[in-house]
Structure formats: structure tokens, C-alpha cells
Nucleic acid binder design. Structure first.
Lengths: 196, 196, 196, 196
DNA sequence: GATGAATGAGCGTTCATTCAT
DNA sequence: CATGAATGAACGCTCATTCAT
């Protein structure tokens, strides 16, 4: 089995363990068991240390997540539409890739600072600023609003991770409406225009 | 020293340790050291297990937090005003009781499901429903909106816990505006009426 | 059992293990077994890490060794006599405290640089310089000669540690003679005067 | 690549690793890396176990060392001169083949008893006895004196291995003088005759 | 011969917990 | 009540060694 494949297999097992038992349960022993490995030494063989595995999981999960979301965003023709696509894609991802989503939630706090950069935050802030320049969004502080938008996404994610009952479809609709109300110029036409 | 006082002392030390080093660093050894105890055995003596201590910390922090917030809410004369007071009080609490706030953030994921109940969530949903009945709020799904409101609060809290730079005053203003836009009927008078 | 006593017991067990099996065999597991402890964790409980135990062993063994030697040196009335007493005492120590001597040999290379200072080397060099000032010793480089004297001591120690057959009594006599010949002014009276 | 060449390559890499990081750092991984091998398996393939590699290193280093020294000894015309040549050659070797010398120092304690035989010791004792028979040396116990002479050599070697500052040229001169004083009949002419 | 992934024993260390005093 | 030494399970990690390719 090739190195690449083994690493991927281990990361996949880690994602599963993280999704099922949370970070605390994600010991090498458990991950090895789920991956069908006979020794935790093999994980150390492929990853220099636990931190590297954690970072690899974070990178993988983040990569898949970002791919999923970006694919659904670049069809947008304006900042507001892109924002809506972002929210929709995020909730969809949670519905379709539950394990990845929960694993991200569990692993985020433990990823290296360098790795776990605020890239997402900055991109969101930029998108919001762009929408303000285009006149689509009202005059809020873009950085703070970026915190809010990501917080809404993370709140849904946390809810999912905590196994609380949650209707993701309704959640998606309400989320889009709420963010539009909160960000766009208050003409009332937009929110109303979409029937919500 | 009375049982009550000892427990309170230990919980207070735990809060400090949690705020400073996060959950991972919150070993009995460290907590005992901060509390000025000479043995971790004393912690085990007063708390049946680590889980009980964690739950006690969660209960204490939650109690103080709720007290702070409720005190500032019941002056409100309507649901919208109460909601605004809730948001303001939450951010204020983070500013004035940083350790308690961060400890809450750190400990929440590890508190017993039974303890960490969704009481807050339900109360928020009830408030929102009340506002809808009174005609103050628009027609959203109250449970979902409650998730969102709490998510916004938690997002700010997480930002604080991660030691990211954050201007709590601006955050408070933007948060209130955003939630008002997202919840009240779109007359535009309210948000505008407060000079933002 | 008091902390002090436990530490001493563990150090004593470590000395025994080192003397019997060398540094490589001196695992916590083995030391704990020899000390009659039920868990290696207890060693970690009393010593912050393996390095601290190693340093404690080095300190203990060095302390006993130095005490033994110094007691027999300060009776000397001149540098030459002190030097002779040093050599004699060293060999005697190896004979009477075999385990401590071998443990010192095994542990020396692994003691912290700070701990394993060249104190002995410097003291020897000072003694030699003093003897030169007094006219007892010939004109050699004191630092280099100190290296030699300590090397002779260490050579005997190594021989002991390697379980090679060695007659310590004869060794003591020959060592004293050799060092006197090598250090004192070549009158010939001294070495001869002692019946060799 | 021939078996012989591979073994030599691995041994050479081991010597380098031993000289740079000491025995503790001489893992197969490191040796393979220095040797430019892609797998530690290759080392196990060519050497039955770590012990065999260690013994091979000891043999190689000892062989080179002995060759260097013997080449400079057989020019001597008497035991005293040979002894002096031995000492000189030893110190010269340390200066000119630092890595081999330090590797010898590091590996000696771990070589098999069988391999690490006392051949050198016996040869030195024989040389000393020869000198005694020829009237060049005084009446000491040859075996013990051999221990001393080798101890002096090893002391310098250890100093080198410990990265302590050491002036090998001065060391060489002082060493020759000391050993001559300690071994030859005390006419005083020799040591003085060489101007030291 | 050479590769490199896989193995499994052993390591030092941390931790919550227990219990005799 | 309080102490603090003792316990033992679990952890991440390293290493020489094996073996299918």
C-alpha cells in the first residue's frame, strides 16, 4: 500500500473517530483500530506526531469543505448572491458530509495556529466589503459582520456536533433570510422578494 | 472550612485554570496548585470524579452568567427590548468577567449532557415567540432563530477564548443592530431610530 | 513513607541496576522492580523526568564518593601527600563501594552538563599547582596533568565496570608510585623511600 | 554494489553518526539517512542485528586505529621508543582522525565482550615486559602499568569525545614525558634529555 | 539485492483516583 | 476533614526488525 493511500486511510479513520467520539476519544489506539492497523506505531510512522495527524485531518476536512462550498459560490454574480450561496453550501455540506463537518468542529480547537489560520474569516470580510462597495450591503463593520456570519455557520455546526435535533433544510432557509435582512440595504424588497 | 466553601474555592480555581490554559491544561494538579491545596486528593474528596467538578464549574459559571444577564433583562418592557438587553448583557459580561466567560467556553463541550441542557436555548425561543405574539418580531421559526442568536453570542465568546483581537464595544453595537434587523418587522424605524 | 526516603530508595535501586546492567538496562521498569514499587509512575511522581533521576543518582554517588575521598585527603600535610591520599582513597572506594563506583562510571556520560561539571578536574589542577608552588612537583602543565591523573582513576574505574579481573591492592600501590614518579622532582628518594 | 562495499558504506555512516551524536543518537534511521540509504531494512539485511553492526564499527575503527599506530611504532628500535611512538601515534590519530577516534570512544562500551577483547591491553603489557627484560623500564607490574597507559590514552580520548577544550600538541608532549618518568629507570637523563 | 511499509515490544510520562494516616 | 504517597491504566512515541514486492 502506498504512503499516500495509508495517510489518507489514517486520516479517514481519524475523521470517523472524531465524528463519533469527539477529540477526547481520538487516541491513536482507537484510530488504528478503526483503520484496521495492528499498531499505533504505524500512525507515528506516517505522521511525525499527533499534532501532524491533527493538522492533516484539519487540512483534509477543510479542503473538502472548501471545495464543496467554493464550487457552489463561484456561480454567483454578486456579493449578496455569493453570500447566500456560501450559507446554503455550508448547510448542505453538513447534511451531505456529516462526519467531515463534525470532525472539523471537533478538531478545529486543536489544529496548529499556523494551519488553522483565519483565512475563512478574512475571505468573508473581503466578500462583505466588496458587497458594500457595490452598494448591495448596508454600512456595517465588515470584520465584525464576518465574525457573525461565521458564528452562525459554526453554531449550526456545533448543534450538529452535539447531536441536538436540527432540521437542516429549515435551518438553511432561515439562515439565508436572516443574513440577508442583516446585511442588505433595508429596502425590504429582497427578503420579501424571495418569499420568506 | 465548610464543605460549601471548599467546593466554591476549588471551582473558582478551576475557572481560573480553564480561562488561562484551556480544558487540556485543567488537570487536578494545576487546579489544586492554583487553589492553594496541598493535594489533588482533596478535589476527589469533594467531587466524586472529574465529571462532577466539570459540571460544577459549568453550573457555577452558567449561574453567574445568567444572573448577570437576567438582572439586565427584566428591566425590559417588551420582547425586542429584552432581546437587546440580552445581547448587550452578554457582551458586557464577556468584557467584565472575562475568566468566567472563557471558562464557560472551554468547559461547555465537556459538561454532562444532562447538565448542559438547552435551558438557555428554550428560554430564548420562548422570548422570541413572545415577541412574535406581541407583533414585535417578524415571522421566523423561533427555535431556529434561537439557535442563531445563541450562535452569535457563542461566536463572540469563541473569538474571545481564542485570544483573537476583538473590539467588544463595536461588537456589541453591531450585534444589536444585526439581530434587530434580522428579527423585527422591517419598518426600518427601529434600527434607524437608534442612530446607527 | 516520607518523600525523602522514597527518593533515596529509588536512587539506591537505580544505583544497583546501573551497577548490574549498565545504563542501557536502567529503565524505570527495572528500577521500580528492584525498588519494590508497583508502578513506574511512582518514579515519575518523585522525579520530574528521567534526567532528574539520573542527575540525582549522579549527585548521590558523587557525594558519597567525594565524602569518602575528602575525609582521607584532609589529613595530608602537603600537596604530594594529598595527591597520594586522593589516589589511595579513590581505589579504596572502588573496593569498598563497588556498586557506587560502577554506577558513577555508567551514569557519568548521561548526567546534565550543568551537574556533571568539571569540578573535580579543576580541584585536581589546583592541587597540582599548589604543589608546584611549594616546590614539591616538577614543572608540568597542571591542567594537562590533572587530565592524566583523573584519567588514571577513571581507567581503573572502567576496568572495574567492565568486570575485568583487577587486583585493586596492587593497583593502588602501582598507581601511587607511578603518579609520584610522574609528578615529583626526580630525586628518587620518595618512591624509593616507600620500599618499592 | 558488492556486499563488502555496502557494509563498508554503512559502517562509515555509523562512524559519522557516532562521532556527531554519540551512541544514543545512532539509530538505524539516522545511519541510513547519512549513508544515503532509503531504508533501514538494508542495514538489517547486511547486519544480522544492531549488535553486529556495532561490532563491525568497533572492528573497523579499531583496525584503522591500530594500523595508524602500528605503522608509527615498528620503526622503533627499543621498547621505550616504541612506547613513546605508541603514545605519539595515539594522540596524532585523535587529531587527524577525529571521527574515528570519537566513534571508538562511543562504541566501545557497547561492543560485544568477545569482540572488544583486551588485545590492546595484552600487547601493551607485552611491550612493557619486553622493555623490562631489556633493562629499559623499571620494575613495575606490567599488566597494571598497561592498564595505566591505556587509561591515559582513553582519558585524552574521552576529553575529545566530551568536546572539552584540549590542546592535543601539548597533551602529546606532556603525555610522553609523564609516561617516560613513570616507566623508565630513574636516571633522570631521559626526560631531561628531551628538553621537556 | 534493495525497498519501504508494517510490526510489536518497550519506553518515559501524565492523570484521575484511592487510601492509610 | 485533610494529606500526600501510591496506584495502574492509558497515552504518544521510538526503535530494531521483518517481509512481501
Amino acid at each position: 500500500m502506498t504512503e499516500q493511500a495509508r495517510r489518507a486511510q489514517i486520516v479517514a479513520a481519524a475523521v470517523e473517530v472524531l465524528a463519533e467520539g469527539g477529540y477526547a476519544a481520538a487516541s491513536f489506539k482507537r484510530i488504528a483500530a478503526v483503520a484496521g492497523l495492528s499498531s499505533t506505531g504505524l500512525i507515528s510512522y506516517h505522521f511525525k506526531g499527533k499534532q501532524e495527524l491533527v493538522d492533516a485531518v484539519y487540512a483534509e476536512v477543510t479542503h473538502v469543505f472548501a471545495g464543496f462550498v467554493l464550487e457552489r459560490m463561484d456561480r454567483g454574480t454578486g456579493a449578496a448572491e455569493e453570500l447566500r450561496a456560501f450559507l446554503t453550501a455550508n448547510v448542505r455540506f453538513m447534511a451531505e458530509h456529516r462526519n467531515h463537518a463534525i470532525a472539523l468542529h471537533e478538531v478545529r480547537a486543536h489544529a496548529s495556529a499556523a494551519t488553522a489560520g483565519d483565512g475563512d474569516h478574512r475571505k468573508m470580510a473581503d466578500l462583505l466589503r466588496e458587497g458594500q462597495r457595490a452598494g448591495e450591503f448596508r454600512d456595517f463593520d465588515a470584520d465584525t459582520m464576518a465574525v457573525f456570519v461565521m458564528a452562525l455557520r459554526d453554531g449550526v455546526l456545533a448543534r450538529l456536533g452535539n447531536r441536538a435535533e436540527i432540521d437542516l433544510d429549515r435551518c438553511e432557509r432561515e439562515l439565508v433570510t436572516m443574513v440577508e435582512l442583516a446585511t442588505t440595504r433595508g429596502t425590504g424588497t429582497w427578503a420579501g422578494g424571495h418569499g420568506r
